[in-house]
Computed example of a mutant assay.
Amino acid sequence: MAELNTGDGGGKKGDKKVRSKKGNSRVDLTAMVDLAFLLITFFMLTTSLNKPQSMDLGMPDKPKPEDPQITMKVPDDRSLTILLGEGNKIKWYLGQFATPLAGPEEVTYGKEGIRKEILSREQILLEKFGDPKKAGLIVIIKPSKKSTYRNLVDILDEMAICKVPTYAIVDITKEEDALLAKVD
C-alpha cells in the first residue's frame, strides 16, 4: 500500500518561531510494480505472435546405393522443364532436352513471363485431354548451382499461383547447365 511518512511534525520547543519540520516524503511503489508485471505478463500470454509463413515441400529421401533406380516415364507433351540460372535467368523447354517439342526459350518471372507460359501450356492440355486430373501439366524444376534460393522460392510461388498439381525439383545436367550459360 502507499504510505506517506511525515516525521514527528514540529519545530523545537522553546524557540520564538515555531517552524514545522519538513519531513521526508516516501511513496511505496511496490503495488504499482506488481501491477505492471501482472499487466505485462497478461499481454504477453494473450497476444498472438506472428507465425512464420512457410510452404510445404515434400522431398524424397536420398537413395541408398543398394536401392534400385526408379525412373518415371513422363509424356513429352505434358512435361515442362524450367531451368533456373544465374542473375534471375529462366529458360524452359517442353519435352526431352535432346528433342524438345518447344523451346528452349528465356523468360522472366511474373505475370508476363513464366506464369503466362505455364498457364498457356495448361490450357493446351485442357483442350487436348479435357480433364486436367487425368492429364495435367508436369513441371520439372532444375536449379543450377549459380541460381539463388530466392529464385527457387519464386518459381515455387508460381507453381502455387498457377495451381500446378505435379512438379518436382531435380538436379540439373551438364548439358542444361551449358544451355543456361550460353548467351542468346
Rank of each mutant, 00 (worst) to 15 (best):
T47L: 07
L29P: 04
A31Q: 14
M1A: 07
S144F: 12
L83Q: 02
L152N: 10
E127F: 08
E106H: 00
D131W: 13
K134C: 00
E176V: 01
A160C: 04
D131E: 12
R115A: 13
P104R: 10
E86Y: 08
I118F: 02
Y149G: 08
G9Y: 11
F129P: 02
V170T: 06
L152R: 09
D67S: 12
G58L: 15
Y93K: 01
K51V: 08
A135R: 10
L49N: 01
K133S: 14
M44G: 11
Q69Y: 07
V170W: 15
G85M: 01
V107C: 09
D177C: 03
R121G: 01
P65V: 02
L125A: 05
T30Q: 14
P132R: 04
V164A: 15
D184L: 01
V139P: 00
K174S: 15
Y149S: 10
I114L: 15
I138E: 11
D184S: 01
L4G: 10
E66Y: 13
N5I: 14
G136Q: 08
D157R: 12
V27F: 09
I40K: 05
L29G: 07
G130I: 03
K51Q: 13
K163H: 14
V18Y: 11
M59C: 13
Y167W: 15
P52A: 09
I138M: 07
T6K: 12
E127C: 04
I161W: 14
V27R: 05
K142F: 00
P104W: 07
L35C: 06
I161V: 13
L94W: 04
A181S: 10
R78E: 06
D8R: 13
E127I: 10
L101G: 03
L101H: 07
N151W: 00
F97G: 00
S25G: 12
K13A: 14
P52R: 10
K174P: 02
K17M: 14
L180D: 02
E106A: 13
N50I: 05
T81S: 09
K51G: 03
G10H: 09
L57M: 04
V27S: 06
P63V: 01
T6C: 14
K22H: 15
M44R: 03
R19F: 01
P132K: 05
M55V: 15
T30P: 04
D56F: 15
K17E: 15
T41H: 12
I118P: 10
D15S: 08
E105R: 02
Q96R: 06
K12H: 13
Y93F: 08
P63L: 05
G7D: 11
E112R: 10
G113C: 00
K21I: 01
K91T: 02
